[in-house]
Design a protein around this nucleic acid. Structure first.
Length: 426
RNA sequence: GUGGCCGUAGCUCAAUCGGUUAGAGCACCAGGUUGUGGUCCUGGGGGUUGGGGGUUCAAGUCCCCUCGGCCACCCCA
């Protein structure tokens, strides 16, 4: 039996599991601070949903989907991204939901491709969406949420790039103009673009090849061709970001891989990762998506942040720590002597009822061994019960960081240990 | 999916020309320790040398296949 997990998947055992869990909590904390509520959608959907939403010419649909048939011969696909499913769910049950609907989710996604570090076949995303609001304030808020999370979760440089790719009013004309330009410079493009740029001309713009970049630099820019409403929207988004104190770089060649984007597109880029995987997250507005999958016109905007990539950029101090703060117990209960198992269990029960995270040994082991276990558990306090305490009806609590200890009733221990917990992460 | 590089304990590495029972440090576990953890001492568990096949008296070492990882491309998270 091969014990390796399937290619492109990973096991998250301690301490890695705790670090990912800490990231989930951090995402939830920030989403809550911005008024986003938690949502989940199925891990798989009808294949049709993604074909229509992402677009037939997108790479996701063309070669990255995990598609399978179930026993009733329905074609299903493991979700490659979160947005389409959230919009589908919203459309099906929109009556009674708040407007706009602000939701976030932290779930795995699946895309078939060759794995690399920070690029897995099963990967996790923090995703936030505002459905039903078309104003620029929504774009700004969604970016602000992602920005707040990222600035706290990662170390080092992070660049927010933004662009507007227009809408169905202005993009067709721009698209035609761009095709003209590309046709005129056809010989300079690299092979794979030379014959296919008419399918998705915007794609050529973010090609990394030097020759293509040179052509892209000379080509007309979509931001100069926006219709009046799109131009106004974009300018208000930029003003709003400025007012939030969020720095960004305008990147006229920033287009995104999925067809459903309109107007604002953005991406967070790290300078620290390998070039092919330096995008930490991205998103944009997708006002046309709801109609594409059969609903009424519904403006919406959102982002997806890749948590594996965030982990690669985590501060080294956090990586070096033996465990994440979120999984450290508050106290480890230690009993001295053979007959103390029942006593430590009772003390643990009391401390847990008081809201503390408590661990203990399953067996009556030597005191030194239990203290060692307490230390290794990461607990902040050891709570010790021996003959003396049992007779007096007290416990001894010892702060493991400096060895300071006191003896008193278990309620006093609970209060003292609980009081020291405030400096932990939010 | 295309191209390249690389696989020896959990991690970092060692093992002479193809030669006997694959070693070390760190990490992990236990004991020292029925009144105190981290340091220290002693001991222990861990390997199908990624897997399979071939060559050979003999393979961690040479050859083939395969699986996996990394890098670039594609593209994105």
């Amino acid at each position: 039996m091969d014990l390796q997990p399937p290619r492109g998947t990973v096991d998250l055992l301690p301490p890695e599991g705790g670090r990912m869990w800490a990231l989930y909590q951090r995402a939830a904390t920030w989403a809550h601070r911005f008024g986003y509520r938690y949502a989940e959608t199925p891990a798989f959907e009808h294949t049709e949903l993604f074909r229509r939403s992402s677009g037939e010419s997108s790479d996701v649909v063309r070669k990255e989907m995990y598609t399978f048939e179930d026993r009733a011969e329905r074609s299903l696909t493991l979700r490659p991204e979160a947005t389409a499913a959230i919009v589908r769910a919203y459309l099906q049950r929109r009556h009674g939901l708040p407007v706009p609907l602000k939701v976030f989710t932290v779930e795995p996604m699946w895309r078939y491709g060759r794995p690399q570090s920070g690029r897995l076949r099963e990967f996790r995303q923090f995703d936030a969406e505002i459905v039903g609001e078309g104003g620029p304030g929504a774009d700004v808020e969604v970016v602000a949420l992602g920005e707040a999370f990222l600035r706290e979760a990662i170390d080092g440089p992070l660049e927010l790039q933004i662009n507007s790719i227009g809408d169905e009013q202005c993009r067709p004309a721009y698209r035609a103009e761009l095709i003209e330009c590309l046709r005129a410079n056809r010989e300079r493009l690299r092979d794979e673009h030379r014959d296919h740029f008419e399918d998705n001309p915007l794609r050529v713009l973010d090609c990394k090849d030097d020759a293509c970049r040179a052509v892209a630099a000379e080509a007309p820019k979509i931001v100069d061709r926006l219709c009046e409403p799109c131009a106004t929207h974009f300018s208000e988004v930029r003003q709003g970001l400025g007012a939030e104190g969020i720095e960004y770089v305008l990147v006229p060649t920033l287009v995104r891989g999925l067809d459903y984007y309109t107007r604002t597109t953005f991406e967070w880029v790290s300078g620290r990762l390998a070039r092919g995987q330096d995008s930490v997250g991205g998103g944009g507005r997708y006002d046309g998506l709801a109609e594409v999958i059969g609903g009424p016109a519904t403006p919406a905007v959102g982002f997806a942040i890749g948590l594996e990539r965030v982990r690669l950029l985590a501060p080294e101090t956090a990586e070096a720590a033996p465990m994440a703060d979120v999984e450290r117990p508050d106290a480890f209960v230690v009993g001295i002597g053979e007959g103390t198992l029942a006593t430590t269990a009772a003390v643990a029960r009391t401390l847990r009822a008081a809201g503390l995270g408590v661990d203990r040994s399953f067996e009556a082991r030597p005191l030194g061994a239990q203290m060692r276990a307490a230390d290794r558990s990461g607990a902040r306090f050891a709570v010790i019960i021996g003959e003396r305490e049992a007779a007096a009806g007290t416990v001894t609590w010892r702060r493991l960081s400096d060895g300071e200890q006191h003896e008193g009733p278990v309620e006093a221990a609970a209060a003292a240990i609980g009081a020291g917990r405030e400096e932990g992460p939010a």
